[in-house]
Design a protein around this nucleic acid. Structure first.
Lengths: 264, 264
DNA sequence: CGCCTTAAATCATCATACAATTATGTTGCC
DNA sequence: GGCAACATAATTGTATGATGATTTAAGGCG
């Protein structure tokens, strides 16, 4: 983050380095918004001030603001300035927005909404996948499952495999809406399961159910697929509940959250 | 649309009018992409050429392209140019994207996906709404229902009321993911029901079921709410099927199907 | 013939200028 | 003294030209 430094107007003859930073600036502004450094509803600084704050030209600032505006984070009006929109207007189904929220996602209590949505959608997606999954997709699921099984005690590897498993599953539903939702599910898994997988309350059980789901898809058994998805989500819900219980989850200190943030 | 004319370099002393056109240009490029005037996978013209094509400066072109890129329609690389992404990468859950697709939405066979998603999501949303809907939200639903009932033979008014009904319903679920999906459902309703409502095969039945759903929410009856949502969607599915039947729907010419088939 | 170097084309950024818009302050009238 | 119309200033939106950065492609050399 601090790598964004202003190095202009040196007034020396140096050849004026110009790295490509628009995406970084966009992410930086978005993060500052997610971190509430710019309060919701308030108008953030003038474009010329933003230039100095982030050390880039107005071109970059403006292109970044337009992107943020297109995702519902801010709204600009001529002469007034750009103001931070209410969180209800944010495009929380957009992958970039979810990544920008990153660890702050827990502050927006949308993890519950995502889990609810998963409980609604994934069983249906599993059913459709039982009808429509290609051999290739089933093989990809199998691979992800094996990676889960062989991940040993490495929670990173386990979570990664889990995420790809569910992503492939949603894709195998061959429903374009469900497919698009995989980024949201991804975020939900990544940040909800990050800590709960460390505890690994239901790791073995989860692996078993995932394997059963793959088998159900092979047999084109819609009911079994739906049931497996339901059981998987019951496990996830249980983990999330345990995670949220303050007297049990001993790993729920801010430290975990912060370190997850500094990654990326 | 034709109001986008180039009027630069008049080399006369006129004060150079500069209307605010960025949003229009963005929509124009997006529409050209949706209309396949720029083929999927191909790279569209250089930025300087786009300036002349759309009659605006590079500033506007670039800001527009960044917005389109942020929604997955195009992807730009230095020196290569910006190329049109595959439709699978488009953010079809984004409201702007859906509006840009507009009538072309039928060419992307996502209406089926949207209907499937509605059949999965709306019953669940109705259940949650039965638990959580506020008095205000129930009143809004009632209003939308009355407008449906009183719309007489005006299909425009009926469709509009129907759309707001389902939008409010998804909002009343108080699930942020479902809420965000209302724009997609909106598009699905708007373009799928547009024609079917003209025929109005099940208009009276639909009105009755909508009313029952409102009553179920009042009584906080989750099962009844879910059942009503299911029945509503059965009606919608029947209408869509009727609409698609070539011997009945007189608007289903092979042209539509071919372009949908040429996809991927 | 192939690998490395060089060159050109295009995007990315910077800087500046001006138009359009609107909040704010000022002035004059009642 | 208060209110309304007007003038002013500040900020965003657009235009334009210049230059750095990057990748494709051509060209030279072994």
């Amino acid at each position: 983050m601090e790598s964004l430094e202003r190095q202009r107007h040196d007034s020396s003859a140096q050849p004026a380095r110009r790295p490509r930073v628009r995406k970084n600036v966009t992410a930086a502004i978005a993060e500052d918004i997610c971190a509430e450094r710019y309060a919701s509803g308030s108008t953030l600084p003038r474009e010329n001030d933003l230039c100095e704050i982030y050390g880039v030209s107005r071109t970059v600032i403006r292109e970044s603001l337009k992107v943020l505006e297109s995702k519902g984070l801010v709204r600009g009006k001529p002469r007034i300035g750009t103001s931070v929109c209410d969180k209800d207007d944010w495009n929380i189904l957009d992958q970039d927005v979810l990544e920008w929220m990153g660890p702050h996602i827990a502050d927006f209590d949308i993890l519950g909404s995502i889990l609810e949505a998963r409980r609604t959608i994934e069983p249906a997606a599993a059913e459709y996948a039982a009808e429509r999954a290609t051999a290739r997709e089933i093989a990809d699921l199998e691979n992800a499952w094996q990676q889960m099984r062989d991940s040993g005690d490495d929670p990173e590897s386990f979570t990664e495999a889990d995420v790809t498993f569910h992503k492939v599953l949603l894709g195998a539903s061959h429903n374009q809406v469900f497919r698009r939702l995989s980024s949201a599910m991804h975020a939900g898994l990544k940040y909800a399961l990050h800590a709960s997988n460390v505890a690994a309350y239901s790791r073995d059980e989860a692996i078993a159910v995932h394997g059963e789901l793959v088998e159900a898809l092979r047999l084109r058994d819609r009911d079994a697929a739906r049931t497996c998805a339901h059981r998987m989500l019951d496990l996830a819900a249980r983990d999330l509940a345990v995670e949220r219980r303050p007297d049990k989850g001993r790993k729920t200190n801010p430290e975990t959250r912060r370190s997850a943030a500094s990654r990326r």
